[in-house]
Structure formats: structure tokens, C-alpha cells
Design a binder for these strands. Structure first.
Lengths: 189, 189
DNA sequence: AAAATACTGTATGGCGTCGTACAGTATGCA
DNA sequence: TGCATACTGTACGACGCCATACAGTATTTT
């Protein structure tokens, strides 16, 4: 059992499985950024949030959630963490008493600069051996892919007509099998 | 192509341009597959597991974990779920009494066929407007990116400038702890 | 043979995110 | 003006995954 050269063994045919390659790569991206940000005591989400408000100024949490692509509830948690470390600050908005304007503190600005540094360094490393055109082509194809994915998600699970009224409850019984399972032959270890 | 058609607004922050697009796309991939697999009562992980053993026969959980790129503990959970629905089966290995050989049941094989169908349909949709060469180029660049990511992860926090004596231990205490915070000016809502 | 080492699957606790429900606030409409 | 609707941030429960620790089993070393 040697193998394990790079990713897996030779069983996976990446010829057709572009999607799984994509997801694996995304996971690696997150891992790499997390690793590099760990010395700052941050993960990728926290760093992105801090970097964003450091660049664009105080922002409401809903906007942050939109930009970071996570839910409003999750953003609240991240803001809590960063606020507990005095890196950011919740300020009431004079215009809208529902919202917080989340802005950086002085310490937050300093750390944001370090984040920016880490980000630049890592991205430079990731570009090694990849030409500018190739990167642009990659971005273009992925954008196109995103469009297709979006339509695939919003569109009903195939075969259904364009009118989405039929997709009201396509799956009333997700558990088809009886599951009686009288013979539990599971070894106890 | 002014981009931002589908994703967000026109901000397109210089943060993690390509990388964030990649991660957003990966998220969409998972969402799309989950949506299409929902009528079968499965998510992407479960479907991948079932499809794998349907194609390659009984497999140990460690192998499955390696192939699906998740930990052994997580695999155990997924196997439990699928086994509870009588889609797969744990069989003791005659050769090694530590391991289970996870194989499909008859119902599992049937469902695996449906999974394969869903998979083919969705992937065909995702290819719309993307040429074969472009897909191959995408795969190539991502593979290269994976290599760079791998080295970036395993390699120490990089930089390694002439001598980093000044930043020998840049952050021994991630919590600067001015956390006394006597003025909790947080509004109660 | 016995002991040391490596490996497999499981239990446990933790983290990050999601989805839903909710109170407070703003906005549009009668 | 009053009322209905929409929006913001939070609380709560759930899910998926990770990391660690562990007992049982295999494999290698002595």
C-alpha cells in the first residue's frame, strides 16, 4: 500500500469530476488561509469580516452577511467574537435604530493591515505556475458555472415544468424503507 | 461582461478575488447537488458514499473517509444513517476483524442508480455554455492550484525572510485582554 | 513467544454554519 | 393617522464536520 502521492489513489477519475475537484480545492483554500491566519488568532471568516470593514468603513451586519455569504445569525456570532477582542466596535446608527454599524477599532485597523499582508503573500504563492490569462479564464468559467448552478438550484428538480407551483411538496416521504431491522448483527467492540 | 450578474452587487472586493469566487462556487455546487438529491432523501455526502460502494464494492470505512475527504468519525456517522435506512450493510471482514466492509443492499443499489441519473442530469446542465477545452483548462488550473495550496499549507507560515528575529513570536497571546470592558454600551433589544 | 508499534472504528466535545422564530424598528398604504 | 408589511439583529435548536482519546485488532520488532 504505497501510493498516496498527492491527493488520493488512482481510483478517482478527475476527467469528469470537475465538481469534486472544485470542492476539494475550495476546502484547501480555506485550510490554507486558516493556517496562515492562525498566527493572528483569526480564521478566514473573521479575517474577511475585519478586512472588509477596515476597507469600506462601518457596515451593518446584514450587509456583512451578504458579502461574506453567510447568514445573519452567523455574522452576529463572528461580530461578537471580534468585539470581545476589541478589534471591532458596534456603533448605533443615527439613521436607523434597528441596526449596528460595525467599525474597526485602532487595534482592529492594525490587525487588518497584517491580514492584508498575509493575504497578499499567500495569493502570490498560489499564483506560482499559473499565468494571468489562465487565472482570468478560470474566473470566467467559474462565473459561468455559477450561473448554471444558480438556475439549477432555483429551477425545480428537473423534469418539472417552468411553473414552480408543482414543486410544492415533491417529497412527502423521504424515508421509504420500513427500517424494522430485526437482526442487528453489529459486532460490539 | 460586467460580471456580478448573479453573485453580489458591484463591489467585487479585491480581497480574495479568484479564491472567493472559487469557494462561493463550491458552495453552490454542494447546494445544487443537495437540492437535486433531496427527493431521494439524501445529501451529497450520503449520495457520494452510496455511489462509491455501489461502483467499487464493499469498502472499509477508512478507505471511504479517504476518498470522500472527510474524517473517519464523520464517515461512521454517515454509515450509520444509511444503514439505518437499509441502504447499506456492514459486513465483517474475514481477513481483518477490526474493519467493516460496507456494501450496498438491494435497495441501496436501486437508489444508487437513481443517484447516478441525477448526477448525470445535473452535470449536463452545469456544462451548458462551457466548452470541453474550457472545462479541461479549468481542471488543469485547479490541479495546479491544489499543488500550490498543498505546499502553502504544509510549509510553515512562509515569509521566512532573511531573519525574522524581530517577529520571532509574533503572537504568543492571541487575547490582548484589555477585556475588562467596564462600559458595556450594548443596547438591549 | 512477548512486547512494541500501527491501524480501525467509535465516543465525545467543540466549532461554524443554517433555519426558524421572535421582538424591535422602519416604511408603505389606507 | 392608524395599520399592515418589510426589515434588522438575536436566541435557539439542529446538522455536518473536526480533533482527540480510546479499546480492540493486526503487524512488526525483539
Amino acid at each position: 500500500m504505497t501510493s498516496h502521492l498527492t491527493t488520493h489513489e488512482l481510483d478517482s477519475p478527475p476527467w469528469l469530476r470537475v465538481e469534486s475537484t472544485l470542492m476539494a480545492t475550495a476546502r484547501l483554500v480555506r485550510t490554507a488561509f486558516d493556517a496562515r491566519l492562525a498566527p493572528l488568532g483569526l480564521n478566514l471568516t473573521q479575517a474577511s469580516l475585519l478586512g472588509y470593514i477596515a476597507e469600506f468603513g462601518p457596515t451593518t451586519q446584514t450587509r456583512l452577511a451578504d458579502h461574506l455569504d453567510i447568514g445573519r445569525a452567523a455574522i452576529g456570532s463572528v461580530v461578537d467574537q471580534l468585539e470581545a477582542r476589541s478589534l471591532i466596535e458596534r456603533q448605533p446608527s443615527p439613521a436607523d435604530r434597528r441596526v449596528w454599524l460595525v467599525g474597526t477599532t485602532a487595534a482592529g485597523r492594525d490587525l487588518a493591515a497584517e491580514i492584508s499582508e498575509v493575504d497578499a503573500v499567500l495569493r502570490a504563492e498560489l499564483r506560482r505556475g499559473i499565468g494571468r490569462e489562465e487565472r482570468q479564464a478560470l474566473a470566467w468559467v467559474m462565473t459561468r458555472l455559477q450561473q448554471n448552478l444558480q438556475t439549477a438550484i432555483t429551477n425545480p428538480p428537473a423534469s418539472a415544468p417552468p411553473d414552480a407551483s408543482s414543486s410544492a411538496s415533491p417529497n412527502p416521504s423521504p424515508n421509504p424503507s420500513p427500517t424494522n431491522d430485526p437482526t442487528n448483527n453489529r459486532r460490539e467492540k
